[in-house]
Design a protein around this nucleic acid. Structure first.
Lengths: 198, 198
DNA sequence: AATCAGCTTGTGCGAGTGACCAAGGCATGC
DNA sequence: GCATGCCTTGGTCACTCGCACAAGCTGATT
């Protein structure tokens, strides 16, 4: 008996996923406050009444969609960091994945939209901060092992740099990872005995 | 004859300014795509028909309002940079002014909203890129004088860091200028003879 | 006094909005 | 057969939206 026939609950879950996916796409394309229930339903090829059946409100759908995408990215990124054998290699692979984002791609836009929405909604901000703390602590641990001073602050700055670069990249085409890598590497200056500036 | 009585054209200009100011406030408060002609007119204490008299469309008003605020900030920032006598002092005063922004204040939000709007509108992006180039070139010149390697790239990264920190600050309360200053100072590592890593 | 240009108002239109709900479908358990 | 949930549809509600436009206002010019 290979796959059991989908139950009503199964189909419900699938519609839920379609709605979440459609919402993330539209947040990126049109901006958070320009997403409508009708637009989401149309993109998901679903009646618009379903939006309010599966979610309490349009805003609840948007928040869950945005947080879900961020969480997925956080999972991938932490896995990438943990798979690297050295801090150098971790930075290299982070820079490499950075090249996948142009600043105008859906993921970059969704991230910025989410930060912006969170800046106006305390609860969303708490949830987002929780996700970011996980990445930052993981990164800080790695930096600490490599002797980078102030690992917590350095990790926070590194994460901020990534999002800042995404913001600026469309306006500054020179911001390639090749050009920026050597500069960022200075942030990882390690404390070696007797190397202090007089 | 001290102040000549305001002409009709004078009053028109003043209404225009009120509309621009109201638009910037509302972009920050509610988000770019949630600003309405009625909202702007109400905030400016003006009939809503005036919006379309003074501006071709709502979007034209929003773009002019956003670019105007960014340009004003660029002017202030470049003046601040040029008044500093050393790169160290320039970084200090830049970090100091950074403390004035919480990430949820109107200016931070307006900047992010503008980047986002520009990412979806090529013409707006060109205008924004022009403004940013001025700041970046000025900063790069100063870095170059101080012997910082890759001044152009370093300047671009520094500007990106500032906006990234604004994005992350509400989620990471530890991102004070005091905590972040020492980390950022590593970016200004100067090339001194014989200081290369073996 | 007549004319004129620039500024302002209020109203109206068609379109789109979030939320809600009665009605029906449909596989499951009895 | 029948009832029980869960899912889905399609329509309606009251409301807001951007934009256009006729009409009126006011001070300067002729």
């Amino acid at each position: 008996m290979p796959p059991p026939p989908p139950t009503a609950a199964d189909r419900g879950r699938e519609v839920r996923q379609r709605l979440l996916r459609a919402a993330t796409e539209l947040i990126a394309e049109r901006g958070w406050s320009a997403v409508s229930t009708r637009g989401v339903a149309e993109r998901a090829e679903v009646g618009q009444g379903l939006v309010h059946y599966h979610f309490a409100s349009l805003d609840a759908l948007l928040q869950q969609a945005a947080l879900g995408t961020v969480e997925e990215f956080v999972r991938e990124f932490t896995a990438l960091m943990e798979s690297a054998v050295s801090t150098e290699e971790a930075l290299d692979s982070a820079l490499g994945s950075l090249d996948g984002f142009s600043g105008t791609d859906p993921i970059s836009l969704l991230f910025t939209e989410t930060y912006l929405a969170a800046a106006r909604d305390e609860e969303l901000m708490r949830a987002l901060a929780g996700l970011l703390t996980r990445v930052r602590d993981g990164l800080a641990g790695r930096l600490s092992d490599s002797g980078v001073p102030q690992p917590q602050e350095t990790a926070a700055v590194l994460l901020a740099v990534v999002d800042g670069l995404m913001l600026h990249r469309p306006a500054s085409p020179s911001l390639t990872s090749a050009a920026v890598g050597p500069v960022l590497r200075r942030l990882l200056t390690t404390t070696t005995p007797g190397s202090e500036t007089p």
